[in-house]
């Protein structure tokens, strides 16, 4: 049996009294495109930040390609992260750098590619996400929301990663631009043959990007299956969430 790309076992994470992940278990096979759905504050971002080593779990084991990442040194973590890319919710582009410098940042700093070559790769990656070479010299504050996401996507795929994370890739975009971004994500992931983990609560995005879907609720994955099983999951929590119903087993915490 091949080693899973990601394996999280009995992971716990809390912030003060708030328990975010509780006995969390997740396995992602190589080449899968897993979308984790769940309400706001359910721990989706904490899950991917824990895999990237940005947050340290209180307990449990997280393995990437069979290598334990909990408790390892920063150098080792940098080495593991050099094989992954991430598209942040707000794109998280560096304000002080122009677009091509942003896209090629990981190549120049992490892989020591020279600036001339890095610029060419950046322009190539910008073309992959449907942006022309004129955009390369612009600064992030000169870009629209959709363009920022595309540049963020170009940066995430610039080093041809084996593992890509997408944090709410369509949040704040209009429906047409959301669909464009979904298409780009699917195309880029398929083209690279990468493993992808996306967190979202946008169901049309989830259906388009995923081949597997997991539902996160109260710190655990309560359902996992393929996209085609989503509508026949038989899980009342999943049914309530995908249909966006106020009534059901999931109750929103509203202060009265």
């Amino acid at each position: 049996m091949s080693i899973p790309k990601i394996e999280m076992q009995h992971v716990y994470k809390s912030f003060g009294n708030k328990k975010v992940l509780e006995d969390f278990n997740l396995t992602v096979s190589k080449g899968d495109s897993l979308v984790i759905i769940g309400g706001s504050g359910s721990g989706k971002s904490v899950t991917i930040k824990s895999i990237l080593g940005l947050l340290k779990p209180d307990k449990g084991s997280i393995k990437v390609d069979g290598r334990e990442i909990v408790g390892i040194g920063s150098r080792e973590l940098e080495e593991i992260n050099s094989h992954s890319g991430m598209l942040f919710q707000g794109a998280a582009l560096f304000d002080s750098l122009n677009v091509w410098q942003n896209v090629s940042f990981g190549l120049v700093q992490g892989k020591k590619v020279n600036l001339k070559e890095a610029r060419l790769i950046a322009i190539d990656k910008l073309k992959d996400v449907g942006l022309s070479s004129e955009v390369a010299e612009l600064y992030p504050d000169e870009l629209s929301g959709g363009m920022k996401k595309r540049v963020g996507l170009a940066r995430a795929i610039a080093s041809n990663p084996e593992l890509i994370f997408f944090d709410e890739p369509t949040t704040g975009l209009d429906p047409i631009m959301s669909d464009v971004i979904n298409d780009l994500i699917k195309r880029c992931v398929d083209h690279l043959g990468a493993t992808a983990i996306t967190i979202t609560h946008d169901m049309s995005s989830a259906r388009k990007i995923a081949n597997k879907i997991g539902m996160l609720y109260q710190g655990k994955i309560i359902w996992q299956g393929s996209v085609k099983d989503l509508d026949v999951s038989g899980n009342p929590y999943v049914e309530q969430f995908i249909n966006g119903r106020a009534a059901g087993p999931i109750s929103m915490e509203v202060r009265k």
């Binding site: 930040k49 990237l52 080593g53 940005l54 973590l77 940098e78 080495e79 992260n81 050099s82 992954s84 890319g85 991430m86 942040f88 998280a92 582009l93 560096f94 940042f105 990981g106 700093q109 992490g110 940066r155 994370f165």
Partner: peptide, 8 residues
């Protein structure tokens, strides 16, 4: 966080 993910 983005810096960390870019191995920096």
């Amino acid at each position: 966080d983005a810096l960390y993910t870019l191995s920096t």
